[in-house]
Structures are given as C-alpha cells and as structure tokens.
Design a protein around this nucleic acid. Structure first.
Length: 464
RNA sequence: GUCCCCUUCGUCUAGCCCGGCCCAGGACACCGCCCUUUCACGGCGGCGACACCGGUUCAAAUCCGGUAGGGGACGCCA
C-alpha cells in the first residue's frame, strides 16, 4: 500500500488566516495519522499579487501552530517552463486551442449573459477557428467536452456530478504566456504525486474542470476532500470585518497555539463528545470521514474558553516564557521582581489570555501607584490604619512560608481580634495589589516575599 | 439568473449511512444555586434545536419527494 501524499497550497497574497490554517491542519492531520507526506506548495502564479512578505507570514503562521511540512515549500513560479510544455502538448493534440477574443469583448458578453439570465460562459467563438493571426495576442483555452457529465467522489461530500454543458472552455494560459491556476494545480498535484486533495469547498466548482484536465493530460485523478467554509457571526464567509482572521493576530492577542489548534480541529470535525485534544490525540483520532458537510460559524467565545483551559493546565515555566514579550510591551522587566513562573502560577486560573495574564501580573513587579479608593472607603478608612498595623505586626512575629500558612496567620489574627475575614482580607489585598481582584492573599505574599509585603503595608499606612 | 453544496439548541456538534435505545446527548455562551477573604476556578441545576410540507412505515431527526432559507462558484484571481 503506497502512502498518502497531501498538500497545503496557499497563494501568497496575504497572511495565513484561520480558514487556511484549518485546511492546513486537516491535511497535516491526515498525513500524520497515516504516516504520509505533507507538502507545502506556494501558488504564486499570479505574479502581480504574490509577495515575499506573504510567503514569510504564511510560514510564520504555520510554524507557530506547529504544522510542520515534509516537503517544500515548492513554488509554482519555478515550474513555468513545465506548464508551457504541457500547454503546447495539449494544443498539439487538439485538446486546447488559441483564442483571440479580447478581455473586453469577453467581459461584455459575460455581463449580457448575466443580465439575460443565462449562464455566463464562453461562447466558443474561437473553438473552430482555422486562421491564426500571427501578431494578435491570444490566450489558450482547454477544449472541454460539451456533453455528458463529469463527476467525482468527494471524501466528505460524497458523489458530486456536474453536467458538462455547465462548464466552458477555460483559459489555461494568459495573453502574457503565464499559466492559470486551474491548470497549474493539476500539473503540480500530478507531478508531486498528490493522492488526496484536501481544500476548502469553495473549490468544488473548480474540481470538474480539473478532473477533465487530468484526463486530457493522461494523469491519474486524485481523491478529493472538500472541507466546509468557516463563516462569521453573520453567516457570510469569514473576513476582516468579522474581526481578526490572521493566525498571528491570535498569537498577539495572547492565544496559545494549542488552543487555536484545538478550536480549529473541532470546527467541522468531531470525535463523539470530545472537546479537548492534545496534538497526539488529534492525530490518533482524526478521520476525514468525520468531517461535517456544512459550514461553521467561528465562535470567539469558545476559542477563549479553550485558551483559558490551556493556560490553566499549562506548564508555568513555559507560560512564563511566552508571557515575556507581553510584559515587555507593558514596560515590565520580569527580572526585577519575583520569580515569574511563581507569579504565573497564581494567575493561571484567572487569566484567559496572555494579555489578561500580563495585565494581572503587573502588580507583582510594581507596587500599586494608586489604591482603589472606593473599595477602601467601604471598610472605613479610620480603622484601616489599625488593621494594617496589626497585620504587619502579626506577620513579623509569626513564621510562615507557604500560602496555606499565611492564610492561617490571617485566620488567627481574625480570631484574636474578633474581626471578620473579609474586613481584613480585602484591605490587605488593596494594599498589596492596589485593587480587590487578585489571587489569594497567601499566594500573593508567598510570591511577593515577606519583606516586600511589609513594605507595601507600611506604604499604605503612610498614605492613609 | 444558472449550476454546485448545505440545513439538529444563539454557536460548535453527537445521533442520520445500518429507522425503534432520542418527548434528541455533549460543549461554549447565558441564567440560578453551592463553594469562597476578592476575582476567578470548580460543582450542581436551568434555558434552549431535529427548517417546512407531503410520502413510505406498526414506528422517522434518521428513508423518499417537494418547498423555503443559507453558502459557494460562474475571472486572462487563487
């Protein structure tokens, strides 16, 4: 049994967006699951719109997600001579012909057809043309069958059949001599021995044309798997106006790659009621047969939930490393202050993104510049001085080193003084962090250290 | 307009191929309660869907037909 070969073939006209990433993911999963080969191919036949920056952005996105490829990146632009050769071959065998209709004429005919409610397809003007004006610009068209049907068995959608009357003679080479997409994919997929073409279902309509080309060229037709689109909240194709679509933008918003991967794999695919998948589990459980047939709406809330999950269960040391750039942006140098991983640990259950984590972690590195006055007022500013002093004294006189030990220091103090816990805990939280939303008091003190804690208590006493 | 595809809670989905276990299960979100020194986490519970109409059948979310709605394609873009 020969092993499968799949490919992800983005065109470098922008960054890697979530739709593309999921297509890449399904390809990668299929290859990894079956021990096949995952190929990356850059479809840059549109010289005008293709840029190196886009190529870099796409590679960066894939690397961030951990979608490693086995071959490539190959560039279609490197294959131009090969395409030309095949175009000529098709012309020689009468399966393609030169068309001298101008782009303007064609456009006018198309508009007219649309207006009259007809299918806007090429009318075949040059199909039987005998003369070949030597100096006129021309395109090359594929001579497509005009009757019968073309069908293929799609791995996710089942058998799809198109009447050939619907398909016109598509252009395979432009006036400037460059080949077009539908032709290049076929040649490339054929010469790269691609066994399974997994791509977005916006390509279903291209498939019958490609099948015809495979046949005309004498290449074996690969298997196809068209995965449904990803839609925005308004159920139209996901685009910038729905918010971030770039994979890298999600990184910058503080998402973890494993969270995005997990989110993406569940969009259109499922394995029973499972929601959380490690990379290994995805690979092990993935089956293209379980990919759904209908489009799905991108749900940022669920992504956020997954991200929270991975932050909660992640390794603090790793999270600390990932957090550093976010801290830098906020002018925090994690070397000046408590151990970052220790600080991270106290916020893992409280932050849903690295941004939230970075914002919440600030107070460990900078003493509060201001206090939540409204909250302070609630506890009666007059008594606060005594409370802080008592806490400070108790801390000095009682040995403690773990969060639990510090917590019991506070409990003991409350018992001794007849205070209620919230009356002490909240003010102390404000003294240490500036506000009322923070990790547990004991946890904070352990991270901050007793010395710093006492200093912050002294500071607030001075300001009362 | 024409062709192709799709249609289970607001959203992601299980179930559908091989009808009965489904007066439809899970997850996100939302609401309530519990836990709790704050905020969270967590636990428990609630809300909430088989697009519609016909047919087949003892029995249909599951099979068949139609209707409606949505998406996609119709490019010398990919």
């Amino acid at each position: 049994m020969s092993s499968i070969r799949v490919r992800f073939a983005p065109s470098p006209t922008g960054y890697l967006h979530v739709g593309g990433a999921r297509t890449a993911l399904f390809n990668w999963l299929m290859a990894r699951k079956q021990g096949g080969t995952f190929i990356l191919r850059i479809e840059d036949t549109d010289v005008e719109r293709s840029t190196q920056e886009s190529v870099d952005a796409i590679l960066q996105g894939m690397e961030w997600l951990g979608l490693d490829w086995d071959e490539g990146p190959y560039y279609q632009s490197a294959n131009f001579p090969l395409y030309k050769e095949h175009v000529q071959g098709l012309i020689d065998s009468g399966k393609a012909y030169k068309c001298y209709c101008s782009a303007g004429e064609l456009e006018a005919k198309r508009d007219l057809a649309m207006k009259e409610g007809r299918k806007p397809k090429y009318d075949g003007t040059c199909r039987q043309r005998a003369d070949q004006p030597p100096n006129d610009p021309f395109v090359v068209r594929f001579r497509a069958p005009q009757s019968g049907v073309t069908s293929f068995d799609d791995l996710v959608k089942g058998t799809i059949t198109f009447p050939n009357e619907e398909l016109d003679d598509l252009i395979i080479q432009r006036t400037d001599g460059t080949p077009t997409y539908n032709f290049c994919v076929v040649i490339d997929d054929a010469i790269m021995d691609i066994t399974t073409v997994i791509r977005g279902d916006d390509h279903v309509n291209n498939t019958p044309r490609q099948v015809q080309l495979y046949e005309a060229l004498g290449f074996p037709v690969p298997q196809f798997a068209h995965v449904p689109m990803i839609l925005g909240a308004d159920k139209t194709r996901l685009s910038k106006r729905h918010g971030a679509t770039s994979v890298i933008a999600y990184r910058d918003m503080g998402f973890l790659p494993e969270a995005l991967m997990n989110y993406l794999v569940r969009l259109g695919w499922s394995h029973g009621d499972d929601e959380i998948f490690t990379r290994e589990e995805m690979i092990q459980k993935f089956d293209i047969a379980n990919v759904g047939r209908s489009a799905s709406v991108f749900n940022p809330d669920k992504l956020l939930w997954l991200n929270a999950h991975y932050i909660k269960t992640g390794d603090p040391e790793r999270l600390a490393k990932l957090l550093i750039p976010f801290l830098k942006e906020r002018g925090i140098d994690p070397k000046q202050g408590p151990d970052l991983a220790a600080a991270v640990r106290t916020l893992q259950e409280r932050a849903r993104t690295m941004i939230e984590m970075a914002d919440a972690i600030k107070f460990y590195y900078h003493p509060p510049a201001a206090y939540d006055e409204a909250a302070l007022a609630k506890f009666g500013k007059d008594h606060l001085g005594a409370v802080y002093q008592a806490v400070s004294d108790k801390l000095v006189s009682t040995p403690a080193s773990t969060a639990a030990e510090y917590d019991s220091v506070f409990k003991d103090l409350c018992t001794e003084q007849g205070w209620k816990m919230p009356q002490v805990g909240q003010p102390v939280r404000i003294a240490l962090s500036g506000g009322t939303q923070a990790p547990g008091i004991g946890e904070i003190i352990v991270v901050l250290g007793k010395e710093e804690t006492l200093q912050r208590l002294a500071a607030i006493i001075r300001k009362l």
